[in-house]
Simulated assay, not measured.
Amino acid sequence: MLYFLIAFALVICFTIFQRKKRRALTQTVLNDAQKQLLTQHINYYNKLSDTDKLYFEDKIEQFLEAVRIEGVGLEVTDTDRIMIASSAVIPIFSFKDWTYRNVTNVLLYPDTFDKDFQFEGDSGEGRNIMGMVGSGYMNGQMILSRNALVKGFSKNSGKENTGIHEFVHLLDNADGATDGIPGGFLQHEYVEPWVRMMHQEIRRIEAGHSDISGYATTNEAEFFAIVSEYFFEKPDQFHTRHPELYDILSKVFAQNPAQNN
């Protein structure tokens, strides 16, 4: 018991030291009110150990320091910032020194928008996009709908989380291609089984034999993002219904969220 207490104390001291070291480089430090927002809105955070909560907070601070969040037609709140940063941190939580190098700005819209990035007007036709990662002249930009973002972190979110979905696209793109194969995070021996599983499940979805969203059949990149939402939002259910997919995603993200429930 004594050895356990000593080891635990050393872990805490090391974590605090690392946070102080990081703060020497980072100006953004979460205040008590912002930490309370984490507790209030981020279920993933609440399931972490005390030590991991400190680490999660540190990664939130790093993200907010590196990425500019701007409101379009709204004023960005601390709740918005916490939800966006958490969307980014959750998929990369186990990647100790990894940061997003393919996003510099997040634009937050009040609601869904169309392919021309419009969210206003008399007709709502075509305004069904909840989030997207920019390309071309929008490279380095992400657009998110606040309504979709908030819904993703609500208690009744189901299997969907738009914020996580879009940051998983960035993770997918880390090897230079948004193709549903996270080459930088999946060992080569698992790539072929993963591709085979994707196509098998897509056929099941198209046949109406899967509980995974039909949007996952759009292409491999959307499949990866959709099942990643499911993996983090409903890990127990995903593990039960899709054990092989769950096993591969556990390797991709180096996480086992069902174990934390």
Score class of each variant (00 low, 15 high):
H239E: 15
G140F: 02
L144V: 00
H209G: 11
S157D: 01
R203Y: 02
S135K: 14
K115N: 07
V106M: 02
K115D: 13
D236H: 10
E160Y: 14
G152I: 00
E233L: 14
K59L: 05
D122G: 13
M197G: 09
E244P: 02
F93R: 08
V11F: 12
S135C: 07
F253Q: 01
L149Y: 00
G163C: 00
A221R: 04
T26F: 00
F223A: 08
Y246I: 07
W194A: 01
E75P: 06
Q259L: 09
N46W: 05
A216P: 01
R241K: 15
Y215S: 10
Q118M: 15
N147W: 04
G176F: 03
A7I: 10
L38K: 04
N261D: 12
L2H: 11
E206L: 14
V103W: 00
N43T: 11
F185R: 12
P257M: 11
E125Y: 05
Q27R: 09
D111E: 10
C13R: 12
F119G: 08
V67Q: 02
R23C: 01
S49Y: 06
K159F: 10
F8D: 11
S210I: 02
M197W: 03
A24V: 12
V133R: 08
P193G: 06
Y109I: 04
P110I: 03
G126Y: 14
V72T: 13
N173L: 15
S135G: 13
P235S: 11
F231E: 08
M83V: 02
N43E: 14
I16Q: 09
E160M: 09
I60F: 01
D58C: 09
V106L: 03
Y100V: 05
N46E: 04
N31E: 05
E65L: 06
F224K: 04
V168W: 01
K47I: 07
R204D: 11
F231W: 10
I226H: 05
G134K: 03
G152N: 02
P182N: 02
T26G: 01
T218N: 10
R203G: 07
D116K: 14
A85M: 07
D111P: 00
N43F: 12
E120I: 15
Y230A: 01
Y190P: 04
A225R: 00
W194M: 13
D32A: 11
I12G: 10
H169C: 03
L170G: 06
F95T: 05
M142F: 07
G214M: 09
S87N: 07
G136Q: 08
I202R: 02
T51S: 09
F253D: 01
D236S: 12
F117N: 09
I226T: 13
V11E: 11
L25D: 11
T218D: 06
A177D: 15
V195M: 13
N128Q: 14
